[in-house]
Structures are given as structure tokens and as C-alpha cells.
Design a protein around this nucleic acid. Structure first.
Lengths: 235, 235
DNA sequence: CGTACCATTGAGTTGCCTCAAACCTAGTGG
DNA sequence: CCACTAGGTTTGAGGCAACTCAATGGTACG
């Protein structure tokens, strides 16, 4: 974690990314820009740990962060990812609870820190911002509920297929249909909620079924339609 | 579902129950009272179905509602319960999405309906209410995340024990340590995320281990300490 | 007193996990 | 430049928790 020489201004950042901050007035943005801090984080760095008391939240300018909870045996369960424009840790600030996840960098990142007081002031004075943030939270809650259903009822095979498709929607493919996020097999397993070996076996099954192609951590989408079918996402 | 002759007023209701509405002014309560509707629902009745477009949300005055999602094979996954003072369906109103769960009555209920417009007006004009609702949502999100971890990593045995303890905290015990909510074995299974038969087998194991006592659907807590231990909730 | 729903028990199967060993790859330092 | 190491990946074998299917038993209610 390093201080930055040239901090990205909130103005350009908000213009660039779709975010809850779109609702802010010019003055509010200026003040935010003044109050925020910004740091560089390398892969493997932590932003905060589960159980931490949060006196502010983070906004990702660049890079990818994983948010996970740690189980009794030390195994991680990835809850979600955050990338450019996404905010992290606001849940704890707003609920007044400790952080319910750990945030760790997956791809080198530039992340701003916004103090809790700024968030509270915005919540109080800008109903539109309040509403946008509320919307964000409600969406996340809906996704969490959906994930509960999946993990409770779907097979690992279906879940893996679904996760791949979800990753595709979140991080896009390049011109060769290759997924633009690089995860270890273990991270994939921690996302699906299964053992690393299971992910490996299923991935190579998917490969021999010609659903995907593999090259190291690169995953290429070959037959998305059939992938959707194996994910059992017919509705 | 029946219209009520004597509708409970929001004033008495708010005084009685701890709820997000505690933040409302006298005038706001009066207006809410005027705009809301109220109905009686019998066990088995539906308030709304997954996928429904919500033009308002519900506030439970009495009774118990289960909120669940339905999987591909028709199996339910219970997401949460709602009882006196709890609100339902607000997530969909705020996110502008369809209902992500179905709401069905478990114990005969009296439930008020509050139009979306009222909610939006309160959100806009009362920052304190906004904040309280935000807090509620964030708490729920935290719980959902915790549930994802549990369901992904814990054994069915551990989860069942944990769910029993959670039910205890939510619905309390009577003077004989008997859980004050009556669920079918299937509902318990749909909550834990397992098969009905598994719940039955584990419950009778818990019973022969003297952790609980059973009498039909009544569950009596005998040895809570050891139940906590079998739930693996040491932290 | 039949019917419908729920609960229980048994038996058989399997998806997925665990453990263990081997292999690959990239980075490091002599 | 190559050996060495560490971290990640792959494959195999074996075991078991939990599921499915099926049959029976209980209980409540009209």
C-alpha cells in the first residue's frame, strides 16, 4: 500500500465510471475530493479484515478486489468482487457493524478511502444520493438471496457454469472470447463454494465437452448457449 | 385474505413494535395511517409471488410470514421470516426490481400494505427514516452473507443446530424452553437447505443426544450450550 | 372413518470431499 | 544459465455425508 503522487480526482472518476456518486452536485464532489484519500494496492494486499471497525469506506478506481468471509476451517468464501466504480465497506459503515468480509486485492488497484463522516453528511443532505445508495444495497441483497438459493440447491457443476457466466457479465470477454479476470483454481472454488479439486475436474470436463477452452488461468468461452444450459438457468 | 373491520392504527403499532417507523413525525404517521391498507391472512395465504411487480410493501402487525425462493425443481429455500413490526417487500420497491421471493403466511397474520409512493416520499423527506431503513437493509445483507458462508461450508448437522438457535433468538422460547414457532419438517429443511428426511434424522439424533426434546412440531431446548457447540459457532 | 397431509424409517446410491502424490511453471539466487 | 524452491495445478483412490426413492406409520379434520 503506497501513497499516490497524482490522485485521481473524483470529478473525472465519476464521469468515467457509473457509480452512486453520479447524483452528487459539483460542490459535493469537490468536498468529497478534498476529504478522500487514495492509495495504490498490490495483488495480495488487504484493504481491511473481517471484524474490523470501519470508519469509512472505499471506492475502487482501478483493479479488482475480492470480498470474502472466512469459515471455521480457514476456507474462504468469496462474496463478491469490486472493480472500477464499485464501492466497498459501506455496508458496515451504514449498519454500524463490524466488517463482515475481508477485502483483498486480486489485480493491482488504486482505491480511494472516504471517511464515514462524508458518507453520513451526503446521506443526510442529498436524498437522491441516499436513494441511489439504497438501490445499490437492495440490488446486492437480491443477488445475495439468489446466491443462497443456488448454493443450497444446485449441483457444483451447475454452480460453476453459472459463476463462469456471471464472471463473463461482470468482467467481460476480450476479442477472443477470453475472460478478462484471472483467478486461481482455489479462488474459483471459493467463489463456487466447493473444493479446489472439484473445480479442476469440472473445468476439464467443460473443456472436453467443448464448452470452454483453457490455457493456464485463461478461460475462453466456446459454447455459451450450452454453458447456460449446464448452469440450469432456463428461466 | 380479508378486509379488516378495525384496522390497527400505525400510531399504536409503532409504539408496540420496534420498527423503522420509529423515526416518523406525528404528521408522517398520520398520513401513513391514512394511506395504508390492512388485511387478515390465514396460514397458507400468499402476500405476493416471486417475480411480482411490487407497487408497495408490507408491514406485519401480527402473525408470521415466510419469505422463500423457489428452485428449479420446485423446492423452496426460505430466506427469512417476518413477524410483528417487520417489513416485507421493500427491497423490490426500492431497487425497482421484481420481488425476489414469495411471501406466504405461516401463522395467521394481520398485515398492512403501504403504497410505494408513501415510501418514496418518506425516503425523500425524512433523512432519519432513510437512514433507519438503510441500516435495516445493510443488516439484512450482512445476515445473507453470513448465511452464504454457512450453507457453503458447514455440514447439515451444524446448520440445523445453528438454525434452531437462530429461531430461538427470533421467536423466543416459552417458560418451558419450547420454541414459539411451529414449522413442518419440510419448512425446517427448506430453511436449512437440505432434504426433509435429513432434518428428521438429525432432529432425532439431537434428541437422543439430549440436546433437544421433541413433541410433534414443538421443539424444546434442553442443552443450549452443547447445541451451540454442535453448531460450531465458537467465535 | 376415510382422506389427506405430514413424519418416520430403511435401503441403496452418488456427488463431492479428503488425502496424497506427482507435475508444472515462474521466479530467485548462486 | 541452471538448479532450486514455492505456489499452483492435476490426477487418482477411497470414503462418507447426504440425497433419493419407497414404504409405512401417525394424526388431524371434515
Amino acid at each position: 500500500m503506497k501513497r499516490l503522487h497524482s490522485i485521481p480526482t473524483c470529478e473525472e472518476c465519476i464521469l468515467e465510471h457509473i457509480s452512486v456518486f453520479k447524483t452528487l452536485s459539483r460542490e459535493e464532489i469537490e468536498q468529497l475530493n478534498y476529504e478522500k484519500g487514495c492509495n495504490i494496492y498490490k495483488r495480495g494486499n488487504y484493504l481491511f479484515h473481517e471484524g474490523a471497525h470501519m470508519n469509512g469506506f472505499y471506492c475502487v478506481h482501478k483493479g479488482i478486489i475480492k470480498l470474502f468471509k472466512t469459515g471455521t476451517e480457514g476456507k474462504e468464501q468469496i462474496i463478491r468482487f469490486a472493480q472500477k466504480g464499485d464501492i466497498i465497506g459501506y455496508r458496515s459503515v451504514l449498519s454500524g457493524e463490524q466488517a463482515c468480509t475481508t477485502a483483498r486485492v486480486i489485480e493491482d488497484a488504486i482505491v480511494c478511502f472516504i471517511p464515514a463522516s462524508s458518507l453520513m453528511r451526503l446521506m443526510k443532505n442529498n436524498a437522491e444520493f441516499s436513494m441511489a445508495l439504497m438501490k445499490r444495497t437492495c440490488k446486492e441483497l437480491g443477488e445475495a438471496n439468489k446466491f443462497i438459493l443456488d448454493i443450497a440447491q444446485k449441483t457444483v457443476r451447475e454452480r460453476l457454469a453459472e459463476i463462469l457466466l456471471l464472471l463473463k457479465d461482470t468482467f467481460d470477454l476480450d476479442e477472443d472470447n477470453i475472460l478478462q479476470i484471472s483467478l486461481t483454481r482455489e479462488e474459483l472454488a471459493n467463489l463456487v463454494g466447493t473444493a479446489t479439486e472439484s473445480v479442476i475436474r469440472l473445468l476439464s470436463e467443460f473443456k472436453s465437452d467443448n464448452l470452454i477452452a483453457l490455457k493456464g488461468r485463461k478461460i475462453k468461452f466456446v459454447d455459451e448457449k450450452r454453458l447456460i444450459r449446464t448452469a440450469n438457468m432456463l428461466r
